[in-house]
């Protein structure tokens, strides 16, 4: 079952007097339980594509369907709700709220989509990412790998259909990266569609498919 599809995505940004085309007719499909690696040199448009696919950036042409819902024409409220409910993001820079605890960061999406997240659910996902006993710590009290695991836990807690990862192991050592990879395996096993933008060969090699993005074009 296709959970994420994009058709002929074009994204341009103004660069002084001229327009630069960041994404140039990108089309892709992602099925449930599939892990796909998105590779390409820096500046090729990987992050931009993830933002477009995850309903973070609506300034493009083309069509994106997320969990069966076309994103185009949705109100900000509907896009936000869809993003909070069906999409999990994992960023290279973690993007955790510094003044919130681990548990609060993980529960953050539930505050916006109206779902009542049981404390047990948060505890369970904390255990799942191997952060037991650190629920009350703040991000600055954690290592890089632990922070990334918090970000992954936050992406998982709502049981999203699609998880989009942007260089999730970019700041981690090989051992920690390996543990993160195991988490991803567990995710796809649960039917989540996973798209990972990465330079990490280990991730790319272990993915079912590899999409190469160069100069905004997919091959």
């Amino acid at each position: 079952m296709t959970l994420l599809s994009a058709s002929n995505i074009v994204k341009e940004v103004r660069d002084g007097e001229r327009k630069a085309r960041i994404l140039d007719g990108v089309s892709l499909e992602l099925a449930a339980g599939e892990r796909v690696a998105l590779v390409g040199p820096s500046g090729s448009g990987k992050s931009t594509l993830l933002h477009v696919l995850g309903a973070l950036d609506g300034d493009y042409t083309g069509e994106v369907r997320l969990a069966g819902t076309p994103l185009e024409g949705l109100s900000d409220r509907a896009r936000s709700r869809l993003r909070g409910r069906d999409v999990g993001f994992v960023f290279q820079a973690y993007n955790l709220v510094s003044r919130a605890t681990v548990a609060e960061n993980i529960a953050l999406p539930s505050r916006f989509n109206g779902t009542q997240l049981a404390p047990e659910a948060v505890r369970e996902v904390i255990e799942r990412v191997g952060l037991s006993g650190k629920a009350d710590r703040r991000p600055h009290q954690l290592s890089g790998g632990e922070r990334q695991r918090v970000a992954i836990a936050r992406a998982l807690v709502q049981k999203p259909k699609v998880v989009l990862c942007d260089e999730p192991t970019g700041n981690l050592d090989a051992e920690t990266g390996g543990k993160i990879l195991q988490l991803f395996d567990a995710l796809t096993g649960a039917g989540v569609a996973l798209l990972i933008a990465t330079h990490d060969r280990a991730i790319a090699d272990s993915s079912r498919r590899e999409l190469k993005l160069k100069d905004g074009k997919l091959s």
Partner: peptide, 11 residues
Amino acid sequence: ILRAVGASRGD
């Protein structure tokens, strides 16, 4: 970050 995890403009 709040917007990324589901906060709308109205929120």
